[in-house]
Write a protein that binds this DNA or RNA. Structure first.
Lengths: 351, 351
DNA sequence: GCCGTTTACTGTACCGGTATACAAGCTGTA
DNA sequence: TACAGCTTGTATACCGGTACAGTAAACGGC
C-alpha cells in the first residue's frame, strides 16, 4: 500500500482532490458537513495533513526562516549573549508559527545549508560578511536581516550603538581619573596576547567597541594596553588580566569586551591580592544577568538583547511580507541604544 | 522575465533539463566539458542552484531535522544545560550538512511547526509526552529520538542515569552524617513554595532525580523538606533556600535540581551568615562549567552533555538512514552514566 | 418569474526538481 | 565482423500539493 495523499482520500470520499485540499487548507471553501466527512476519513486513513515539502513547493513558502551564526554553532551556544538573543528571536517567531533553522557555516560534506535548506528568509548574526555562507544567502536573493554586522546596502540591519556605549564606558574611567587603562578582548582569528589595535581582525562589533573606547581614551592622552584571547569565556578573561596586571606599570582600570571576560578579570584581580574597585576598576559589556549578581556588582554597558531580537524578527517578517507582495521597500538600518550602567566595580584610582 | 530554472538553462545551452540537473547533482553523469559549460551559463543567468523545496519534494528528503524543546523556547535558551546540549547537537549535525530547526510548541496562529515544517526527523528534548506537538510528530511517523523523556516503545531514547546519580548524591550527604536535608527544585506547573513529593508535576528528569534522592534518604530515615520554584535560575534558588533556612529546624544540607539553583542557594546561605560547607552543605546537579568556578567549588552530579548530544544526533541520523532504507530496526534505549563529583561545598554537619 | 449573486465544488495547469529506463556512440576483443 | 560493455545524454513519469478559472445549483430581491 502506497502513501496516503490527497488523492487517496479524494477517491475514497468521492470528491475531487482539490476539495480535499481545501478541507485542510481553506475550510471556508466547502460545506462544514462535507469537510467533517473528509476529515473523518482522512483520519481513518492515517493522513496527517498536507505534506510540508509539497506544500512548500506549490505555495512558494516554507514555514521556516534560517539563522546564520558565527563560526561553530557550539561556540555561539556557549555565549550567553548569543543564546539570549536566540531565545528572544525564537519567542518572537513562535506566534507567527515560523520555525527557526540553525544554519551551520560548516560546508564539509558538500552540503551548504545556506544554499540547500529551504526557507523563507534568514537572519545573519555576527558573521564574517565575506564568508561563502553569507554569499549564498545573498545570491539566493532571499529576505535577509543583518544583526551585529556591518550594514550593507539593500539589506535591513539591526545594530547596537556599540561605539557610543564603549565611548561612554571609557569616558567614565577617564572622568574617574584613570590614566593607565587596560583592555581585555577576544577573537579567534588574529594575534593573541598583548596586541596593538592594528593586530585585531575582529568582527564589526569588536572593532566598533574598540573604536569607542579609543574615542574617549585618545583625547585624554591614554593609550591602553590590550590583551586579546581566542575565546570569550571567564577563563580567558582571567588569563588576559594576568598578562595586563603583570606589566611593570599595571593598569588601574580594565575595559572588557564582555561581562563574561570581566568575570575572569575580577577573579584574576582578587587572586592577585587586588581589591575591586579600590585597586582595579573593571567595566564589562552587555549587562548579562550575571553582571548584577557579581560581587562587586559589575559596571557595564547595557544593551537590550530582547529588543534586538524583537527588532530583528520584526524586520525579517516584514521583509518576507514585502518580498511576497513584490514591494521591496527600503532596507531600514536600525541602531539600538547602549547605556552605561554604573555599579560598584568602578571607582577612582588609588591616590 | 520569469525565474531561472533548470529549463531556462537547458534551453539556453541546448541540452535536456535532466542533463542540467545532473550537472548540479550528479557530476559523474556527464562529461566535464559539458558540465563546465552548463555551470558557466547557469552562473551567467544568476542561477543559484536547485531549488531546495522542489528538491525536497522530488527526493523525499529535506536537509534538516527538527528539535522540539520544552515549553517556551526562550526558557530553554536561558538554561545552560539545554543550550550546551543544543550546541553539542549542532556540532554533531554540522558535518552531515543537516540544518537544525527549532520547533516551538506554540500552536497559536493555526500553524503547528511539528506538523507543518518539512524535516527528515526530529529530536524531542525534555517535552511533555502528552503535548500535541509530540503527538503530531508521532503521527507523521517520522524518525524520532527522545532525550530526557520517559522512553517509549519503538522510539530510540537517550537518557541519563538521573536516578542513580541523585541517589549517590543523597547517599553522600547521609554518609557525611546529615539528617536534616532540604531539596530545592523547580517546575512551572504544579505547586510552589514548600511542597511534598506528591505535589510535584514534573517532567521525567525531575521525577527521576527526586526518586533517586528519596532512594537514599528514606532508608536513612530522613524525610526532606522540599522547596519548589517556578523557574530554575539562581534567583529562584535564592528564594527557595531562604524558605528552607527560615524553618525552625533548618537543614544542614541541601540537594539542588541544578547547579544554577545551587548558585542561588549558596548566595542565600552566605547572606544568612552561614558558611558553606561548614554550616550548610550544598549539592548541585549537571556539573555545568560554573560549578567548578563557584566558591567553594560545587559538589555536584556530573552528566556528560556532549556525549548526550553526540548519542542523540547519532541515533537520529541512524534512524533516518534506517527509515530511508526501509529497515526499521529496533529502537535502542540508551542510558548515559551520571557521576558524583565531590568538591568543596559539602562537609559533615557541625557537631 | 427573471436575473444577478453567492455557495460549493471541479478541472487543469503548474511549482521545480529527480529517478529510472533507454538510446546512441565509442571501445575493446574474440 | 559482431557483440558485450562503458560513457553520455534524453524522454517520460512522477513527487504531493496549490492557484485560479470555471460551472452548476441554490438564493434573494423586486
Amino acid at each position: 500500500m502506497g502513501r496516503v495523499t490527497l488523492q487517496t482520500i479524494a477517491d475514497r470520499v468521492g470528491v475531487s482532490r482539490m476539495t480535499v485540499s481545501n478541507a485542510f487548507s481553506r475550510p471556508d471553501q466547502l460545506s462544514p458537513t462535507l469537510r467533517d466527512r473528509i476529515l473523518a476519513i482522512a483520519d481513518e486513513l492515517g493522513y496527517v495533513g498536507p505534506d510540508p515539502a509539497a506544500r512548500a513547493l506549490a505555495r512558494g513558502s516554507t514555514g521556516a526562516v534560517g539563522i546564520l551564526l558565527t563560526e561553530s554553532l557550539s561556540g555561539a551556544f556557549a555565549d550567553e549573549v548569543a543564546t539570549t538573543f536566540l531565545g528572544a528571536i525564537a519567542d518572537e517567531l513562535a506566534p507567527t508559527g515560523l520555525g527557526l533553522t540553525l544554519l551551520s557555516t560548516d560546508t564539509a560534506g558538500g552540503v551548504v545549508p545556506a544554499r540547500d535548506v529551504a526557507m523563507d528568509g534568514a537572519l545573519v548574526y555576527s558573521c564574517d560578511p565575506e564568508s561563502t555562507a553569507v554569499d549564498w544567502l545573498l545570491r539566493r536573493k532571499m529576505p535577509l536581516v543583518f544583526i551585529d554586522q556591518v550594514p550593507a546596502d539593500g539589506v535591513p540591519a539591526v545594530n547596537v550603538a556599540d561605539r557610543a556605549g564603549a565611548r561612554t564606558a571609557a569616558q567614565h574611567l577617564v572622568d574617574l581619573g584613570h590614566r593607565r587603562v587596560g583592555i581585555v578582548t577576544s577573537g579567534v582569528r588574529g594575534r593573541h596576547g598583548m596586541v596593538s589595535p592594528g593586530d585585531m581582525i575582529d568582527g564589526y562589533v569588536g572593532s566598533q567597541r574598540l573604536s569607542g573606547w579609543l574615542d574617549a581614551l585618545t583625547p585624554a592622552g591614554v593609550s591602553p594596553a590590550i590583551a586579546r584571547e581566542p575565546h570569550g569565556d571567564p577563563e580567558s578573561g582571567y588569563q588576559a588580566a594576568r598578562l595586563l596586571l603583570s606589566a611593570p606599570e599595571p593598569p588601574t582600570a580594565i575595559l572588557c569586551f564582555s561581562d563574561a571576560l570581566a568575570q575572569g578579570v575580577v577573579s584574576a584581580a582578587v587572586d592577585a591580592g587586588l581589591s575591586v574597585p579600590e585597586d582595579l576598576s573593571v567595566v564589562g559589556f552587555d549587562d548579562s544577568p550575571a553582571a548584577a549578581r557579581m560581587r562587586p556588582p559589575l559596571t557595564t554597558v547595557r544593551q537590550d538583547i530582547h529588543a534586538k531580537g524583537h527588532a530583528a524578527a520584526a524586520a525579517l517578517t516584514q521583509a518576507i511580507e514585502a518580498a511576497k507582495a513584490g514591494t521591496p521597500g527600503p532596507a531600514e538600518h536600525l541602531c539600538l541604544p547602549a547605556e552605561l550602567i554604573v555599579r560598584a566595580s568602578t571607582a577612582p584610582p588609588r591616590a
